[in-house]
Design a binder for these strands. Structure first.
Lengths: 143, 143
DNA sequence: TATTGTTATACTCTATAACTATA
DNA sequence: TATAGTTATAGAGTATAACAATA
């Protein structure tokens, strides 16, 4: 068991807390620039990968299915998302981005990449190192 | 200008996104274990450093001052926070944790450190490296 | 006049429970 | 019966605007 209450670990925890705070603020700010709330932006980004049943969205976003109804309602009323029937199961509604929704999701993604200026402070070699350390930390084994 | 749209940067952005998601989930979970919402936990943690005027709390939490009234109300009704007069300016109300509030804040802080298991995956040398990279990334210059 | 905190209002997100239509 | 989605409800967080007390 590695000691985790040491000051080095505490310092890193604080640094990660700072990263998390900045990341969240930037995400909310980027979402607001597209007149989206954070929850709406996260849901739209999720759908831009692939259309999903309401139930699956709730699982991915780790919230109750009943909440998804309202968020999709608001995105749908703005023409960013649409509900499609599932040919195989008439109980299921697939939420999918419209063409405009896909454009908005892409614009959001781009503005987020630009907002991530801090990484520019690191050299290429340092970024490679950071990537490997984050992967190790997250228990991700690169192939 | 360092290129930021390269795939290495994109990978790191994704990894940081994963860290942010996990950190937030763990924070909300730790807060819930003390019957606190995330906003209440963040406010209480802030006050555990030093008592602050309502206005300052809003600045630190980056929200409107009117919101602080309600959050402090809820913490006060549970006996975790109290409002004190400022001897120097009678307009100001200083929010401060009670003895129980301070204990709750400390318990929250401890449970967060324990929740940060991922860092245990790294050796001491790797953690030192990670710390330095995060500092560089955040524009923090160690003395 | 300017500032501090509050109230009033409206909207969004959240969980819980009950409902409907399908399976 | 079980599942997918919805509705109803209530609590919490948020921004905006208007207000009282104090500076």
């Amino acid at each position: 068991m590695t000691p985790r209450a040491d000051s080095l670990t505490a310092e890193i925890v604080d640094l990660i807390g700072t990263v998390v705070t900045r990341y969240y603020e930037e995400y909310e700010h980027a979402a607001a620039e597209h007149s989206l709330t954070g929850a709406q932006a996260r849901l739209l980004s999720l759908l831009s990968v692939e259309p999903l049943p309401m139930r699956k969205i709730a699982e991915r976003l780790k919230c109750e299915p009943s909440n998804i109804t309202g968020i999709v309602d608001r995105l749908e009323s703005r023409g960013l998302v649409e509900r499609r029937p599932d040919p195989a199961d008439r109980r299921i509604k697939l939420a999918a981005p419209t063409a405009e929704g896909a454009r908005t999701a892409e614009a959001l993604r781009m503005s987020l990449h630009f907002a991530r200026e801090p990484l520019g402070e690191l050299t290429s070699a340092e970024r490679t190192l950071l990537k490997q350390l984050l992967q190790r930390m997250l228990g991700i084994t690169p192939e």
